[in-house]
Each structure stands twice: as structure tokens, then as C-alpha cells.
Design a protein around this nucleic acid. Structure first.
Length: 567
RNA sequence: GCACCCGUAGUGAAAUGGAUAUCACAACAGUCUUCGGAACUGUCGUUGGGGGUUCGAGUCCCUCCGGGUGCACCA
């Protein structure tokens, strides 16, 4: 018996009971009671039905309970009615024993389901722009996008990861123009990003420079100027290469890269094809009148008066190019929530050109990573780069490691894995739509609620298992041992994976894993796990430890966080 | 001004309309001759204000207050 089936089993017998009682089917919930002593599952079906029938919910609950008793599944120990009208189900310990064994059977596969089997999803996230810094905002998009990708995979779908990069546009022209005007050398991606920020400042203060940038921008598109082409290719190459290095460190990889230089031309042609019609000319530009479709929408420019496609037109082209590249069922786009409104306009335009694509496209706007001092801006150079953040957290990790008996601080990739785990955790611990106030001190603290706390718990479990091995005690469940809260929670992992998909909620997994780690650490503090005097019970406790480690590892893996053996 | 999002202990967060609102940090008080103290136990303290819907509201509706974001050629 696999967990996610349990709630649907219960749902089934409840529906049948309603039918037998000649009651109407209603929309009821099957959930875990907050207070575990109430039972393992509960349903509010009596309260929902009582509303429609205008009867006493408690009496109705009793009636439904009697009906349920007639077809009580064998894993159910008892069914009870509580206060306002809940019906609580308590399962037999043997059920949990079976589920615990299942964790060890499934091992690395434990938690996966086939709900989305056969479905193809393409997901776009991160989207850093060449010529600019890869800052902590991109880290946020990458972390959330990667976690969602994995959640979808764990729910059975095939996933292709896409990264969309603005390799052309006014931002690029600023950097290129700056290099040409000042003749600075570009050796690394940092020199390029510096040109971008310096060029942006000039762009705002110097009229002549601004005109030059517009010129350069046109030539980047037309590819007619040799010097500009060379500078452009150099900057593009340096930044893209650097991004690849970062993806390795972050533990992410992409199947497809899309560039504005290709989507722009394609999108521009699409817009022209539907002008007039879907689009219209206005003040020399080609625009989409969102407000004519829906009062919540507004007008947006798709092709500017220079004849250059804006982000809107590019994104339109991108939607089609994605489908031509990988014929998906679902397309997900992860971006900052500052573009939420603009994305609605874009979807409205897309729905008129490619209705099917629009229907299957989902936009996830994640919150902003903001500094206590205010908004970051790469135009003013006021940014925290991903690299500097990882470096700072790594330093902190090393300090901590040096205080330990087993000083592993010389293992650079281990240090990096822990640092990245800490960063990813701090992003994923809250609902994706909300802003993360980036408090540096908090982000590099590993106490309590943190990635390293989970990794540490797992590393500690590994040590226990090793010790057990040395002592010749294998992890084996003891029959008829009473079931602990920890075990009951461990067994729920597959439900959490399913829930994380349904609600687009990576944080549901984070919250769950933190609860698991807390329960295990309490268990660890209160029990001698490996005890030569009591081999049978030691074997049982080791089996619980092994299961806990498995769930932690699988959960961290879904989140894109590694689980080091030692740390 | 219009639109969208948000407001939960001192701080950062969690909670498909359900039972006694959960977790961490901070503060305070403890635990350890044991397997990894990045640990464990305890105390303190919370739904912005006002109406409404509901058997039941942090969650839904109205309103006020406060904050964020977007609103024509940036992405």
C-alpha cells in the first residue's frame, strides 16, 4: 500500500457511505488532523453535508460513521466522531510498519509517483542576461525553478529545462558602447559587467553617449560593424562561459538555451503578421491594447519606433520556438513577480495568436530578493552577486568546520555544497511568491531552520549507521514495536511531494523535512541508538535512522540540495 | 490616480474554510562521563483596525490604515 492511495481509499469509502445513505455527494476534505492524538486522518464530510441538509453535524457524523464501519478497510484500527462533527480514522500500527519497510524497499525512489506520467513539461527559469552580473535575484529564480522542475519530475512528468537570455537589447549596447568609447580591456566577465554599469550611468547623464548607445544597438542587430561585432561576441562569450561555471556550483543544468537574438526576429515577424488586427500602430510603435480585452490589462509596446522588438515581442516568439523545439503539454515560466501584470498582457496576446499554447502556459512570479537597504540595481552597480554570496557563506561554513574534531574545511566542493544548500534553503523555506528580505547575518546562520541543519542530521545518521556496521548490528525493524510520531511522519513523504506539485509549493517540502529532522534529533537525544546490550532494539532504532536518512536525502534531492555523507 | 500583490509574537516565516494558530531566530532558564553541540528540553510572546458571510475565518466579502510592484517604446 502506497501512501497517496490511502487518502483516495478513504475518500472512496466515504463516497460510498454517502451513496448508501442516499445522501448527496459533497466536496469534502480528507486530511491529517493537526493534533495527532485525534487520529491519522480526518474528514469534515459530516459538517459539509450538515450544512446542505440543515441537520446536526454531530448526529450526521455518527450516522456516517456507522455506515463506514460496515466497510472498514483492514488497515483502519478505529473510526471516531469528534466535537463539531469530524470523523477521525486511526490506523493500525501494522500499517505503519508496512509503510516503514516500504521506505527501505523504494530507497532513492521513495516519494515518487506516476501522477503526471506521459506528460511533457518545459520550464524556463534563471534567465540571466549576458553582459550583466549574475546576482542573487537570478540565484532565487534558479533555486525556485530547479526545485519546481524536480518536483514535477518526482510526480512522473518528463521535464526539459530552459534558460532564456537577453543577448541583444539596449542593456547590451550600453556595455559595448562603453568599451568602445573608453577602450577598457575585457578579460573576464567582471570587466564586462563593469562596462555595463559604467555605461548605464553615462547613458543617463551624457546625451551624446546615449545617442551613441542607440547607434550601437542598431548595429548589434544589423551586424554591419566589424568592431562592434567583435566586442559584442567577446562580451557575450565571456559572460556565457561564466554562467556555465556557476550552474555547476549551483547544481543545475539546462537542456535548452534560447536567445533574444533569435526569438526577437521571430516575434517581430509574428507581430507584423497580425498588424493590423491583434496589434495596432500607435505613435510609430506597434502596440497591443490590453485594456480593450480586459479592464485589468493595459497597453504594451511590442515593437518600438526604432523597429526593434521589445521583450514582449521576443517572449511571444519564444513561446512558439519552445513548442517547436520540444512539443510539450505544459510550459512553465518562472520570473520575478514584478512582471506579473505585463505577463498577463502577453498571455492575452498569445491567446489570440496561439490559443493552445496560451492555455498550457503557466507563469510563476517569484518574490524579490531584497536588501534591507532597498532594491538592487545592476545599473548602478548596487548588487550582491551570486558569486560573492556563495563565497561569503562558504567562509562561514569553513569557520564552523574548523571548530569540529573532523575538520573537513579543506574539501572545497563539500564547503560549496553546504554553502549552496544554506542559500537554497533560505530561499525555498517560504512560499515562492513572497519577497525574501535578504538579511545577510540570517542567511549565513546555520542554527535551527536551515539547510545545514538538515544536512547535519543526515550526516549524523550516516555516522550512526557506520557505527552499527562496526558493531555488527544491521538495521532491521523489530516486529510489534509501537509506532512513534517520527515514523508516522516519515511515511507521509510521498503525500508531501504530491502536495508540493499541486500547490506549486517547494516550501511544503522544506517545512516537512525540518519537522522530520527535529523529530529525529529529539529521538536521538532521548535514546541510545546503538547499544550492544540491546541488539534487537538497536537494530530497530537503526532501521528508523536509516529510513529518516533516506527521506531527508530524497527530500533534499527534490529541492536541489545535496546531502553530504560527512560534514 | 488606476491595477495587482502583501500585512501573523521583538525579528523572519508556516498553516486545501476546520479541532488548542505551528517553526526558527532573539531573550531568559536548563540538558550532556554515551553514538557528531550545526544538537536537545523548557519559559516568554502573534493573526493591522472596523464591519460582514459561515456551525466554524489568519484564510472568503466590504471598508479603512500601512507596505510593495506595475502602468508606452528597459527587461
Amino acid at each position: 500500500m502506497i501512501q497517496p492511495m490511502v487518502s483516495s481509499d478513504l475518500r472512496g469509502i466515504i463516497e460510498k457511505a454517502l451513496k448508501n445513505l442516499a445522501m448527496e455527494q459533497v466536496d469534502f476534505a480528507v486530511e491529517h488532523p493537526e493534533e495527532m492524538s485525534h487520529g491519522d486522518y480526518a474528514t469534515n464530510v459530516a459538517m459539509v453535508s450538515a450544512k446542505a441538509l440543515k441537520t446536526n453535524p454531530l448526529e450526521l457524523a455518527e450516522k456516517i460513521k456507522e455506515e463506514l464501519e460496515k466497510e472498514k478497510p483492514d488497515f483502519v484500527e478505529k473510526i471516531e466522531v469528534a466535537k463539531p462533527g469530524f470523523i477521525n480514522f486511526t490506523f493500525k500500527d501494522s500499517f505503519f510498519a508496512g509503510e516503514m519497510a516500504n521506505i527501505l524497499d523504494k530507497a532513492d525512489e521513495f516519494g515518487k509517483n506516476e501522477k503526471l506520467s506521459g506528460q511533457k513539461t518545459i520550464i524556463e527559469y534563471t534567465d540571466p542576461n549576458p553582459f550583466k552580473e549574475f546576482h542573487i535575484g537570478h540565484t532565487m529564480s534558479n533555486t525556485i525553478g530547479e526545485a519546481i522542475s524536480r518536483i514535477i519530475e518526482w510526480n512522473g512528468a518528463e521535464v526539459r529545462r530552459a534558460c532564456y537570455q537577453g543577448d541583444k537589447g539596449i542593456h547590451v549596447a550600453r556595455a559595448v558602447a562603453h568599451k568602445i568609447k573608453t577602450k577598457v580591456e575585457w578579460r573576464t566577465e567582471k570587466d564586462v559587467a563593469l562596462s555595463y554599469s559604467e555605461g548605464s550611468k553615462l547613458y543617463e547623464t551624457d546625451e551624446d553617449f546615449k545617442k551613441f548607445v542607440v547607434e550601437v544597438n542598431k548595429k548589434i542587430y544589423s551586424e554591419t560593424d566589424t568592431e562592434i561585432n567583435e566586442v559584442y561576441m567577446l562580451g557575450r562569450g565571456l559572460t556565457l562561459e561564466y554562467f556555465e561555471k556557476l550552474y555547476k556550483v549551483l547544481g543545475t543544468r539546462f537542456d535548452y538555451y534560447f536567445f533574444e537574438s533569435t526569438t526577437g526576429e521571430f516575434g517581430k515577424a509574428l507581430v507584423h503578421k497580425h498588424t493590423p488586427g491583434i496589434f495596432e500602430e500607435s505613435e510609430g510603435a506597434i502596440v497591443f491594447r490590453g485594456e480593450k480585452r480586459d479592464t485589468k490589462l493595459h497597453t504594451r509596446v511590442f515593437i518600438n519606433k526604432e523597429g526593434i522588438p521589445t521583450y514582449e515581442a521576443k517572449e511571444l516568439g519564444l513561446a512558439k520556438i519552445k513548442y517547436d523545439t520540444y512539443s510539450h503539454d505544459i510550459s512553465i515560466v518562472v520570473t520575478g513577480n514584478e512582471v506579473n501584470d505585463y505577463f498577463k498582457v502577453l498571455m492575452s496576446a498569445l491567446s489570440e495568436i496561439f490559443p493552445n499554447l496560451a492555455k498550457n502556459t503557466k507563469h510563476i512570479g517569484h518574490g524579490m530578493l531584497r536588501l534591507p537597504t532597498g532594491k538592487m540595481s545592476s545599473r548602478t552597480g548596487d548588487v550582491i552577486t551570486a558569486e560573492s554570496l556563495i563565497r561569503a557563506v562558504s567562509e562561514k561554513v569553513k569557520e564552523k568546520m574548523k571548530k569540529s574534531d573532523r575538520d573537513l574545511s579543506s574539501d572545497e566542493s563539500l564547503v560549496s555544497d553546504i554553502a549552496v544548500g544554506a542559500i537554497r534553503y533560505s530561499i525555498l523555506r517560504q512560499a515562492p511568491g513572497r519577497d525574501v528580505i535578504f538579511d545577510f547575518e540570517k542567511a549565513i546562520s546555520f542554527e535551527g531552520d536551515s539547510g545545514p541543519y538538515l544536512q547535519y542530521t543526515n550526516a549524523r545518521i550516516n555516522s550512526l549507521l557506520e557505527k552499527g556496521k562496526e558493531m555488527g548490528i544491521n538495521p532491521v525493524f523489530k516486529k510489534d514495536e509501537s509506532v512513534s510520531v517520527l515514523e508516522k511522519i516519515l511515511v507521509r513523504f510521498p503525500e508531501v511531494v504530491a502536495e508540493a506539485y499541486e500547490n506549486t509549493a517547494p516550501h511544503a517540502i522544506v517545512t516537512y523535512l525540518t519537522e522530520v529532522a527535529g523529530l529525529f534529533n529529539a529521538f536521538y537525544a532521548n535514546n541510545q541508538i546503538v547499544d550492544l546490550e540491546k541488539k534487537e532494539i538497536s537494530a530497530h532504532r537503526l532501521a528508523i535512522a536509516l529510513s529518516t536518512g533516506q527521506v531527508l536525502k530524497n527530500g533534499l534531492s527534490v529541492l536541489g540540495i545535496s546531502s553530504p555523507e560527512k560534514m
